[in-house]
Amino acid sequence: MKTVHRYLLAAGFVVLSGIVSLLASPSLPADLVTNWGATGEPNGTMPMLLALWLFPALTAGLLVVFAVIPRIDPLRENISEFRSYYDWFVVIFTLYMFVIHAGIVAFNLGYEFNFTYLILVAVAGLFYYSGVVLTHAEQNWFVGIRTPWTLSSEEVWARTHALGGRLFKLTAVLTLVGLLFGDYALYFLLVPALLTAGVTVVYSYYLYERIEGGSDTTSGSNL
């Protein structure tokens, strides 16, 4: 499947979101529930028109951004090396946005389910594939774990992303495990996600100092 076909598939999910909004609007109340607490209890609303079109419009805008990134990145040739993985991330992201949007509409149509669980399952899928992308990502300015140290060393980039990919996948698995723990389920996403962010940043710094510091020491000893 070529890039253009993958983007057409992603655009299809945006169109589906709009169709869902059009079909559901006559049966929806003036204000829709759009926020839920950690326990799945509704705790916020939004005017119907805004709620119905926010996600389709936001997804469409982000789809344009995703399409532009490979063209404007100074290291665009590196993105081309993992372009298929990048494109499928775009497809999965738009699917994720469609699922959340459809879930909001379904909940407000009277279907009863734990919306927090829906979000957690969707996020788990998005996180797992993000881990896949990270393990294949080449050095660039937009996609991946972009710290000063990963952007300054190809080796630091590669090793940090190898670790980050595994941690993202582990976070996804723990998120699904968290569904078994009721009101505490959200913490099985938040805690691993925060730890992943912190660990990868610290690890990239550690690697850079060890690799570049070792190079400096070696160079100095040869003077």
Rank of each mutant, 00 (worst) to 15 (best):
S80T: 13
L23R: 14
F66E: 07
E77S: 12
I119K: 00
A11C: 10
A102Y: 13
P74Y: 11
Y206G: 00
V191P: 10
F93C: 07
T135G: 13
G220A: 15
V132Y: 12
L28D: 03
S25F: 03
V14Y: 05
S17M: 15
N140E: 06
A158N: 13
G198P: 11
W141L: 14
Y184F: 11
I104K: 02
R71A: 14
V90Q: 04
L176N: 05
I79R: 02
M97F: 12
W149N: 09
Y117N: 13
N35K: 15
V20Q: 03
V65C: 12
E81Y: 11
S152C: 03
I145M: 09
V132D: 06
L174R: 02
N108I: 01
T39W: 00
G165T: 09
R159W: 05
W36L: 02
G178P: 01
S84V: 10
E81S: 14
T34Y: 14
R210W: 03
I19W: 12
F142D: 07
E155M: 12
L95W: 09
L52R: 09
V191H: 08
Y184A: 14
Y117E: 11
Y203V: 04
L22P: 00
L62M: 15
L223M: 10
G103K: 04
G37Y: 07
M97N: 02
V4T: 13
F113S: 09
E155W: 00
